[in-house]
Structure formats: structure tokens, C-alpha cells
């Protein structure tokens, strides 16, 4: 009963704001799907958040040694549409790739938002540890800007492999490091994968806004709701792995759906819900296109995953050993 009342109150409220009931329910259902929770439960918490928050919560998005891939991934969010998040749910104070401002106008917007505090800080890209000068913005080292921004942040979210654990830049001579090393001791929500999954990011931001706290995290700071399961356990090629059928020739339609282990798949030791959630509005994901899982949700990406397209990487050797030891039988996995 309680939930029903909350739903009604919220609907009256949004109708007063000119959003019709159907559109709002659709929005809520899509948002709830991000969390994998029931619609009514989510609406109760969202109702509370909307009723108590007098203005849109500010978000600062910083880019360090990045490729903007996480930004593009986030802009690809269709359900709920990213425009509704940017314009209706958050106040995006600073984002180099999206904001209208440039130069000193942009820098002032950053300073004002930091001074006011209470924002969600999203960080994309690694921090160069070999020399600060490998990443300069507005004439200042990215590292310094990051430290300033963390001071008054309500929550810090690292997006993508680079910002979480260093990713590919970690293996370059600029020695990129993730926030785990750049901000030791700080509470950071880690959303790895290269790039970040837009659902993971939108869901985490909205979870924080609805509940006022981070979702439950695993030992390496990843939300359990997205990274609990091993890709392998939900892979549609799993039956072929168990039966020992491995794809060797991409031209052979008979092998088309066989297991990708011999081409370097790291799915058996990678935690993420990619195989269930899939990517790009559910169209596909890495393993479905005849590609392999490169383990981009794990801290060992990229150095422990190379050579990528063989079963000879450190990670692949570990998988093969585990398989030979019978560790992937249904009972144990």
C-alpha cells in the first residue's frame, strides 16, 4: 500500500511538471532496469529523492589520459535517453567534450562548482605518474585538477579501465595510473570495462542520487549489482566450452557459435554482466560478434591479457589450467 501511495504522489508531482504518466512510467521502468530491481521499489526511492532534492545535483566530469570513449559510450544511452539525464536529472557543470563553454569560461565553471561542493565527480582516463606534464589542462597538471576536484566531492566514480586501474596507459612509458593509486585511501566507485558500460554509469549515478550512498561494492570497488557474475557463466557459447568445441576458423558456419577460448577469450575469469545486459541497447557484445572477451573489467587489463588473440597470455594460461583441473564444471563455477 505504501508503495502505491508513493507512486501516486510522485505521478501527481511529475504531471504538474508537464510530464505525462505514460512517459514517466516508461522512464522509471527503463531506469529500474538499469539496477535490475523492481519498478515499484525504485520509484519509492526516486520519489523520495525527487521530493527532498530542491535542485538538480551537480556533476563534474573530468578527462585525464583518456580517449573520450567512455563519454561516447555514455552519450549512446537510449533507455533512459541520455538527454533526460543531462537536462533533467543532473546539472552537468563541467565536461570538456560536452559543455558549451571553452577556455577561461570553462575554467571558471569548474572553480565555481568545486567551491560549492556536494557534486558527483566522474573521472575518465588515467593519471600520468611518470611526469605530470604528460597531461596538462588549462596550463595545469591534470593530477592537480583531480586533487582539487576530489576535495569537495560527495561521491567519486571512476569510469573505464584507465581511470579505475590504469588500463592500457598503465603499460605505456607515461605510466598511467588509476584512481586506486592516484587517490589512495579515497572511497571510489569503480566502473571498469573499456569503455564504461553506459547502463553501469547511469545506474550508479541514479542509485547514488536516489539512496544518498554508493551501491554495495566488491573488494576492488565495483558495484556488486553489475560485476557479481563471471561472464563465462552466462555466455551462450558455454555449452561448447563444456563440450570442448573451440572455434578455429571464422569462415566455417559450423564453428560459428563455438567457444572462443583458443582465440584468447578471458570470459572465464572476468566479472561483468556483459553477457546478460549486452551492449548498445542489447544488440550484441564482444563474444557474440565472434570476438573475444579481453578481460577489460579486471585490474590486469591490458598487461596480463596480452598476447590478446591467443591462449598464451598469463590470464589464458590460468584459464586453461583451471579448466584442466575441472574447476569450470557447473558444480564448481
Amino acid at each position: 500500500m505504501k508503495e502505491k501511495r508513493a507512486e501516486r504522489n510522485l505521478l501527481q508531482m511529475v504531471e504538474a511538471h508537464g510530464i505525462n504518466r505514460r512517459a514517466f512510467l516508461k522512464y522509471c521502468a527503463a531506469t529500474a532496469a538499469l539496477f535490475g530491481i523492481s519498478k515499484s521499489k525504485f520509484m519509492t526511492s526516486l520519489a523520495h529523492a525527487m521530493e527532498t532534492a530542491s535542485q538538480k545535483p551537480p556533476v563534474i566530469w573530468l578527462e585525464g589520459q583518456d580517449c573520450a570513449g567512455c563519454t561516447i559510450a555514455f552519450l549512446g544511452l537510449l533507455n533512459p535517453p541520455v538527454s533526460s539525464i543531462i537536462l533533467d536529472k543532473i546539472s552537468l557543470r563541467y565536461h570538456e567534450t560536452a559543455m558549451a563553454a571553452a577556455g577561461h569560461t570553462a575554467e571558471e565553471a569548474f572553480e565555481e562548482a568545486v567551491k560549492a561542493g556536494g557534486y558527483v565527480l566522474v573521472v575518465e582516463g588515467s593519471v600520468p605518474s611518470a611526469d605530470d606534464r604528460f597531461c596538462m589542462i588549462g596550463g595545469r597538471p591534470f593530477k592537480k585538477i583531480l586533487e582539487e576536484a576530489t576535495a569537495n566531492a560527495a561521491a567519486i566514480i571512476a569510469v573505464g579501465a584507465c581511470a579505475t586501474y590504469g588500463g592500457i596507459p598503465a603499460a605505456t612509458p607515461s605510466k598511467g595510473i588509476g584512481l586506486n593509486k592516484a587517490l589512495p585511501g579515497k572511497a571510489v566507485i569503480n566502473l571498469p570495462t573499456c569503455p564504461v558500460h553506459p547502463d553501469h554509469l547511469a545506474g550508479t549515478i541514479l542509485y547514488f542520487l536516489a539512496n544518498g550512498k554508493a551501491p554495495e561494492l566488491d573488494k576492488i570497488g565495483r558495484p556488486v549489482m553489475y560485476y557479481r557474475e563471471v561472464i563465462h557463466d552466462n555466455c551462450r557459447r558455454r555449452g561448447h566450452f563444456d563440450a570442448g568445441r573451440f572455434l578455429m576458423d571464422w569462415n566455417d558456419p559450423a564453428q560459428k557459435d563455438w567457444c572462443m577460448l583458443m582465440k584468447g577469450c578471458k570470459g572465464p575469469v572476468t566479472n561483468s554482466d556483459c553477457a546478460v545486459r549486452r551492449w548498445n541497447d542489447g544488440i550484441s557484445f564482444c563474444i557474440d560478434c565472434g570476438g573475444v572477451c579481453m578481460g577489460c573489467a579486471e585490474p590486469g587489463f591490458y598487461s596480463e591479457m596480452t598476447p590478446l588473440y591467443t591462449a598464451e597470455s598469463e590470464t589464458s594460461k590460468r584459464i586453461v589450467a583451471l579448466r584442466d583441473a575441472g574447476m569450470f564444471t557447473k558444480k564448481n563455477s
Binding site: I72, P195, I283
Partner: peptide, 29 residues
């Protein structure tokens, strides 16, 4: 433009950063 990237994902697996382009051709039958 999000939908246009989704077109690429039909064979590329996902975007950004496709998975199917390798030496010798593609992996997506």
C-alpha cells in the same frame, strides 16, 4: 548518432571499440 553506432555493433559487437576487426578480415560471420 547513438543509433548509428548501434548499426556498427551489429557486426562489431559493441561501441566504442569494436571487437570484430582483425588481421585478415573480420570475426563476425
Amino acid at each position: 548518432h547513438a543509433k548509428a553506432r548501434n548499426m556498427g555493433a551489429i557486426w562489431g559487437g559493441r561501441t566504442p571499440h569494436y571487437q570484430n576487426i582483425v588481421v585478415g578480415g573480420v570475426t563476425s560471420y
